[in-house]
Structure formats: structure tokens, C-alpha cells
Design a protein around this nucleic acid. Structure first.
Lengths: 203, 203
DNA sequence: GTCTATAACCTGATAGAC
DNA sequence: GTCTATCAGGTTATAGAC
């Protein structure tokens, strides 16, 4: 109801954008009808095109926003030469798990977006690429020269993000996980760094 | 070309099913047009409905098939009381990574299917649920009573499956990973069990 | 800026000939 | 079984009144 009140005071443009975030995240681009967005925004269909010209342009706006928040969280951490490796791992785990607990649909949305429009994604990220030249990769390599830093980077991403992507499946396979999911994720903020430290010792 | 020849000798029904697997896996349900499938199968649109009645029924057929191969690989391993914990971990890692290397679109397809139709997924899996009562969960708990077995189950799934789901993103973030992806995944068949053993010691 | 009405197009599905 | 032609309904986007 706090949300409802807030929405009533937003401009039409902002109401549409907010509704678009919600519906696109829940259903994806193809399954979303502009009518759904207009209805969720409490405005008319024509107004959507008045402000955003087309479904595709509105989607790109949302996608850009979501990709930014998804990667904006991690890229500065990876590239910071001042912080230690352990600090980086802790910060990434803590921030990602917090963010995804608040935005459970984000992982699948981002994964689909990257797959369906890799070129747009690349254009959006230029300048932030070359993970293997980052401070993080260098520190990983120093700590454990036996395992490629790519592997350990993949691991921290996997351990933080994948649980949210497979949540619906987990809830079916094990009702107990469904019931305690948020608690489990909260625990992982401390467990992931511990596991990463253990993995760093593996040759 | 072996594939092309094979397709020419298939029955129309099988050609349609094969094309449906391909197109649905690449684009998902909503973005796929029955015309795309018909074209990929080299047959007429009407024939698709003649054999499968509707787009939705055809999709469910494909989905059932894919979910079976995705979970059929792991559930028997989890429930086998005879094999050791280390054997289970090794088998899961080896089979999943091999299977996903051959079917790179499978993870995202399954994740989307589970999210969009959790009830169908649950119906498809009844009898195979209750992970926490499995031999795997019991063995995890014995080996490390300090960490919930759910957490370690989530970890092995994450480490095996997620790299394939985020491959398109990885290729943008780091061109080097894109170039050596298959090699990295092959290495992980041995690394994932090592990492899991290391994580099992963490309290 | 916001609405109603409608144009223009696309998609799933079927009828009916062969 | 397989095709062409077409229907019925839905979808995006716009025209035009207010």
C-alpha cells in the first residue's frame, strides 16, 4: 500500500517505467504485452507509445537499467587495486546476495538478456571488459598459481547468483529449501567467503 | 551434413519434433512462432497442428523431454545408497559437464521452464522429491554436520550448471574465457570434486 | 498529456483440395 | 499425409478528439 500511494504520486512516464520493470522482469520481453504494462501502470496503452515510442525501446531502457545494477555492483570491486582479495570476495558475496534477495527475478532476466542480445550487452559494457587484467584476477593468480583465475571468478559468481536462478526448481525438489530459502541465502553471505578461501588452496 | 541426411530420412512427425527442440531451446516458448518450427522442419505449418494439435502441446512435449534428461541424470545418483559421497560428487560433475557441453542451451531453458510452469514441473517430478531424505543429503550431513546439506547441494549444482548459463556474459566480460570455454569446462570435471572436498571441511 | 477508436500487421489454428 | 488458402483473434502502433 506504501507502493500504491507512491505510484499515485508518480508522473505517468515514471508509472509506465515502473510497471515495465515489473512486467518485463516477470514475463520476459516476448511474453509481455504492452497492454499488460499499461494496465499495471494504470494508464492507457496509447500513452506508453507517446512516452517511449515502442515496446522495444521501453524494454531496452529497462534492460540497460538492470544490467547496470547487476554489473555495476561487481566491476568496481574487481578493479580496485587497494582492497585485498579476501575483502573483494567478502564484498561481492555480501552485496550480490543482498541485492538478489531483494530482486529475485534479476538473475534469470539478466541471463536471458545477455543470451538474446549479446551485442547490446557488449556495447553497454565496453571499457569494463578484460576481466583477466583486473586486480582481482591478478590477486587470484598470486594466491593460487595452479588454478586459472577464470575458474575462481566463475565460482564466486556461481555460488552467489545461481541459487536465486534455480530457486523455483529447488522449491519443488525440496519443500524444506523453499521454506527456509531466505535464511539459507543469508547464511551464504558468510559461507561463500569461507568456501572461496578453501577453494583457493586447491591445486 | 550427417544431420541433414539424417533429417531427410526422418518421418515428418520426427522432423517437426526435432525442429521444435531446436527452435524452442534457442528462443523460448513465447518468442517462437509455429511457422519458425515448420520452416526449420522443412514441412508445412498445417502439418504441425495435424500431428501435435497446438503449439502448447508441442512445447510441453519438448519440455518434458528436456526436464527428464536434465534431472534424470542426477536424481538416481543422489538416491543411490551404495556409492560413496565422493563417488556421487565425481559422477554428478562429470555427467553434468559433459551433457551441458553438448547442450549449452539446456540450463537456461530448464531454468525458464521451472520458473514459468512450476506446477507442471512439480507434477513431472513427483516421487523424486524430498532431496533432504536422499542418501546424498545424509552422507553430506555425516561428513560435515556444521553446514546444512542443502547448502552443499546448491553448491555442486551451481558450480556445474551456472558456468553454461552465463557463458554469453562471460564471453563479453572476458574474450579469453570465450576462446577457451570448452577447455575450462573440461578442467572443471576434476576441479569441481576437488573444490567440493575442500568445501566439505569448512565449518 | 491523455483518452477512444482503429489501422496494419502477425500468429495460431483449421477447412478443404489433392 | 501433405499441401494451399484463409479465418478468427490478438498485438503493436498511430490518428485524432478532448
Amino acid at each position: 500500500m506504501a507502493k500504491k500511494k507512491q505510484q499515485d504520486t508518480l508522473s505517468s512516464e515514471e508509472k509506465i517505467k515502473e510497471a515495465a520493470r515489473k512486467v518485463f522482469m516477470e514475463k520476459g520481453y516476448a511474453a509481455t504485452r504492452t497492454r499488460d504494462i499499461a494496465e499495471a501502470a494504470g494508464i492507457n496503452l496509447a500513452l506508453l507509445n507517446y512516452y517511449f515510442r515502442s515496446k522495444e525501446k521501453l524494454f531496452e531502457l529497462v534492460m540497460q537499467e538492470k544490467l547496470s545494477s547487476f554489473f555495476g555492483l561487481i566491476l568496481p570491486v574487481l578493479q580496485d587495486p587497494a582492497s585485498s582479495l579476501d575483502d573483494k570476495i567478502h564484498t561481492i558475496a555480501d552485496r550480490y546476495i543482498s541485492m538478489l534477495a531483494a530482486n529475485p527475478d534479476l538473475p534469470l532476466f539478466v541471463l536471458n538478456a545477455m543470451r538474446n542480445a549479446p551485442k547490446k550487452f557488449a556495447a553497454m559494457l565496453k571499457g569494463a571488459d578484460h576481466l583477466l587484467q583486473s586486480a582481482f584476477a591478478r590477486q587470484l593468480k598470486e594466491r593460487n598459481p595452479h588454478v586459472a583465475p577464470e575458474q575462481l571468478f566463475i565460482n564466486i559468481m556461481s555460488l552467489c547468483i545461481f541459487p536465486f536462478a534455480m530457486r523455483p526448481g529447488l522449491e519443488v525438489i525440496s519443500p524444506e529449501i523453499g521454506a527456509t530459502f531466505n535464511v539459507l541465502m543469508e547464511e551464504r553471505k558468510k559461507l561463500v567467503p569461507k568456501w572461496m578461501r578453501a577453494m583457493l588452496k586447491v591445486k
